[in-house]
Amino acid sequence: MKVLELLEEIEEIVDTASGFPLTGKIMVDAQELLEIVREIRHELPEEIQQAQWIKNERERIIAEAKNEYEAVIADAKRQAEALVENDDITVKAKLRADELMRVTEETAKQLKMSTYDYVDSILFNFQEKMEQLNALYFGDMFGTIEKTFNDINSTLSNNREEIKEMAYRTQMNEDDTMQEAEPRQEERDGE
């Protein structure tokens, strides 16, 4: 990673710089430091592109999961309609359709939850890496770069919160669906 190498170069310049007696201050070549800072600014967009790729990948995975979920549900409905020929077959078809719907929804929920966990772990690892870089290499001297890291960290936190919220809503929708399905099953048992 080019940015880390440049930061190590700054650290080496500071470590080897001549000091002013009794002040704790050092003398460094401003041009040399400014050139390194320019290179860091040049390299940072690549890191930001990686964060954008992670966000886009998360959205793609969620869209695929939703499409698969809808396709399975549509298939289950088609199978249930094809089985409706007489009363005995109708009852069995309804039971089978309900079971397929339950299994399908559970599978879709598990897929969604796995996707959320996967995206959250990627975002968490990237967030940790950004915090480590921030803690190790940036101080008061690089306020602008620190702001960039804080913005990225905030975006990652927001993305993680969105994932957790989506997972929570999925769980709540599943619980509501299960509660609605229980009275329908009792009605069928009464028939």
Rank of each mutant, 00 (worst) to 15 (best):
A97W: 13
Q31V: 07
M113W: 13
K164F: 07
E9F: 05
E180Y: 12
L4H: 12
S114L: 13
A93P: 05
R96W: 03
T155F: 15
E39W: 01
A108S: 09
K164T: 13
D120R: 14
R58L: 07
I40G: 09
R169C: 07
T107E: 11
L100D: 09
E186T: 10
V3F: 03
T16H: 10
V72L: 07
D75K: 05
E46K: 08
R38C: 11
E81C: 02
R160A: 04
E99C: 03
N56D: 14
D29N: 12
F138H: 03
Q49P: 12
V14P: 01
L111R: 15
M113S: 14
A135L: 09
Y168K: 14
A63Y: 13
T107P: 00
R160G: 08
Q52S: 14
Y168E: 07
F126I: 12
K109P: 00
E106N: 08
I54V: 14
D140F: 14
M130V: 06
L6C: 08
L83H: 05
I122S: 08
T148Q: 11
I163W: 02
L44V: 12
D15L: 10
M27R: 11
N67Y: 12
E174V: 08
D120K: 15
Q171V: 03
A30P: 03
D117E: 13
E5H: 11
L6E: 05
A63M: 01
Y69C: 07
M101S: 04
D175S: 07
E32H: 04
E131W: 05
R58A: 10
A51K: 06
I40Y: 02
E81T: 08
M172D: 02
E12M: 10
M178V: 07
H42F: 15
E106I: 00
T104R: 10
V103G: 00
G139S: 04
M1C: 08
Y118N: 10
S114K: 14
D151I: 14
V72F: 13
I152N: 08
Q79M: 03
M113D: 10
A74S: 10
R169D: 15
V119N: 08
N86K: 01
E68D: 10
H42N: 15
K77D: 05
E68A: 10
A17Q: 01
Q50F: 02
I10A: 01
L136M: 11
S157E: 04
P183G: 13
I48D: 11
K94G: 02
T16W: 01
G143K: 04
M172I: 01
N134E: 14
I40S: 06
I40H: 05
E59F: 09
Y118P: 13
E191D: 00
I145K: 02
N150R: 12
T177C: 01
D120A: 15
H42P: 07
E8T: 12
Q31A: 15
N56G: 13
D151T: 14
K147P: 02
N158C: 06
L123K: 09
R58Q: 09
E106C: 00
I26K: 06
E191K: 00
R41V: 10
M1K: 06
Q50D: 06
E81S: 03
V3D: 00
Q179V: 08
Q185K: 05
E11L: 11
L123I: 06
K164M: 13
E146C: 09
